[in-house]
Amino acid sequence: MAQTESKAPGSGKRPKRGVPEGLWQKCPGCRSTIYIKEAQALLGVCPKCNYHFYVPALERIRQVLDEGTFEEWDANLRPTDPLEFKDQKAYRDRLVSEQKRTGLTDAVITGCGMIRARRVAFGVTDSAFIMGSMGSVVGERLTRLVERATAENLPLIIVSGSGGGARMHEGILSLMQMAKVSAALAKYDSAGGLFISVLTNPTMGGVAASFASLGDVIFAEPKALIGFAGPRTIKETIRIELPKGFQTSEFLLEHGYIDRIVTRDKLKSEIARVIDYCGK
């Protein structure tokens, strides 16, 4: 499992010493100090180096769907603690603090909305909520989303961001969500559905090894970390330095696993174009 930092311009979660909170931020890509308002105007992209910052799920919905068209589905589902899991902190308490910190009930939001006046089923995971990992609620919301897209014959868009993939705190039940969502996608596929999967930084582990990789069309944002095993795990296993650019969007494009690298400003229009080409 990999962990990467989640930083949102203006999210105000990690105030920097000596800098007025929420005004300036150091870009993880080029290390230059950037004016947050300017990055926000560019949908959360560094004006100097094109680094794509983390975007919270609700902000992603605003960026991709037509204004005011999003209708949330299955918002009434809540995570629970079937294993009574406890590491240094009880999972039950972790859930409460994550919900408070992020304002989300779990790591995914699903529903429907319009993309340039085309109705779509839309899901987005948020890597800020327990690393965007897939517990039972994430698996269930996504499965219901896919099933409803199948029933209503809607194009399906899922934007993935997950540092961990499966959620350890829900044990085997988390792992089984991979099979559950994949099976739902197989049915959707058999029914002729169009699934556009959008990979963002990071998309790893069980999320990469299930729905995120199953798109009919797979887009990735530039320089996102995408892969099965975390770089640290690989390094510990094979004990050699990893090649430069390993497991980035560009690496995956070169090896033939994604269709296009799409910058954030083009994402909405490219999705709309694919929907049109596929006649959906």
Binding site: M178, A186, A209, S210, G227, I234, I238, I240
Partner: peptide, 20 residues
């Protein structure tokens, strides 16, 4: 977990296998 495995689509094949 290895470089070659990632280059040859470890995540994709596991996803496809469950799907199929």
């Amino acid at each position: 977990p290895g470089v070659g495995a990632e280059e040859r689509g470890q995540a994709l094949v596991i996803a496809q296998s469950m799907f199929e």
